[in-house]
Design a protein around this nucleic acid. Structure first.
Length: 287
DNA sequence: AGCCTTACTCGACCCGCGAC
DNA sequence: GTCGCGGGTCGAGTAAGGCT
């Protein structure tokens, strides 16, 4: 779907993009051929040829950042088709809502189907080096909460990647509200062990763990990784609907299959068991 | 409960096209 | 070739909503 995209060109909005598709210019290759043959629907578009070539090169090099200043934020979902395997889904837990007064307690990530947990007092400091390798972030309301919070806590971390913020993608499709509300609307379910857990309860779980309750940490980790894992399904649902609504050229709009992006419950359980084992608890108490 | 980015609205500007 | 109109894009200002 990224290769069918033209709204990153100056002077092209959704309507002109659709007009290009209707003229048979369905992707970047077709654009370059049409430019060479003088068949572009408006002469001004010929000046966009260098940008199209740069776009092709950026995809070849895996440089999603190239598109960040060019794509309107609500349209960054178009990067998913080309960068799905190199995207990192993430969600954070904190002790409150203020980046300056509260602390990050846990960060859950998921990349190419592999979950990881970063826990304060255990391995939280490993997060900046880990996140640096990914060219694309996927969050829910992360542009307003998670990323500013992480920036405040890891001032040197590389967090300038393009970001797909599912809150706004889904809202543009009519799915408004918080993460749990949207999940229910789309028929996603949660493990009964974390039914009723919300962000506020997550703060309480963290406090219980600090007072020595190892089960509280496991529950918090399951809550956090469930949030992250569900982002995969939400994104796939959103992209499918967006492609249909935008009128993407049919044969190109089909999502490439992305196997193993969402891990099964047993993989999540193994990740939680590894991070929440007793020696992690000992390390925390010594810290 | 505080923060931050985005959506939304509206006006200005640009470009293409048709009439003359 | 020039002018005027209309559709589309862009930018500034404001308000809202969701995260723990």
């Amino acid at each position: 779907m990224l290769r069918n995209t033209f709204i990153h060109l100056p002077g092209v909005g959704p309507l002109r993009e659709r007009s290009l598709w209707e003229h048979g210019i369905r992707d970047w290759d077709a654009f370059l051929v049409a430019a060479e043959e003088g068949r572009l629907p408006s002469s001004g578009l010929a000046s966009a040829v260098p940008l199209i070539r740069q776009s092709q090169e950026a995809v070849r090099l895996g440089d999603a950042g190239f598109f960040k200043p060019l794509l309107p934020p609500p349209e960054t979902w178009r990067l998913f088709g080309e960068f799905a395997e190199r995207a990192v889904f993430l969600d954070i837990e904190t002790t409150g809502l203020s980046p300056w007064c509260d602390e990050v307690t846990m960060i859950g990530t998921l990349a190419a189907g592999r979950p990881r947990l970063f826990i304060r007092g255990v391995n939280l400091e490993d997060f900046p080096d880990y996140v640096e390798q990914f060219p694309l972030l996927v969050t829910f309301n992360g542009s307003q909460f998670d990323v500013p919070f992480l920036r405040a806590h890891f001032p040197g971390a590389r967090l300038d990647q393009p970001q797909i913020d599912l809150r706004f993608v889904l809202a543009s499709l009519g799915y408004r509200g918080g993460l749990k509300t949207v999940e229910r609307s789309l028929g996603l379910s949660r493990d009964p062990a974390i039914q009723g857990v919300d962000g506020f309860e997550a703060v309480r779980l963290w406090r219980r763990w600090r007072r020595g309750d190892p089960e509280a940490l496991r529950r918090l980790a399951l809550y956090n990784l469930t949030d992250v894992a569900n982002l995969v399904e939400l994104l796939e649902a959103a992209v499918e609907r967006k492609c249909r609504l935008a009128g993407f050229p049919a044969e190109k709009a089909m999502l490439r299959p992305c196997p193993m992006l969402k891990p099964g419950a047993e993989i999540l359980a193994a990740c939680i068991a590894e991070c929440c084992q007793e020696d992690a608890a000992r390390k925390f108490r010594l810290a």
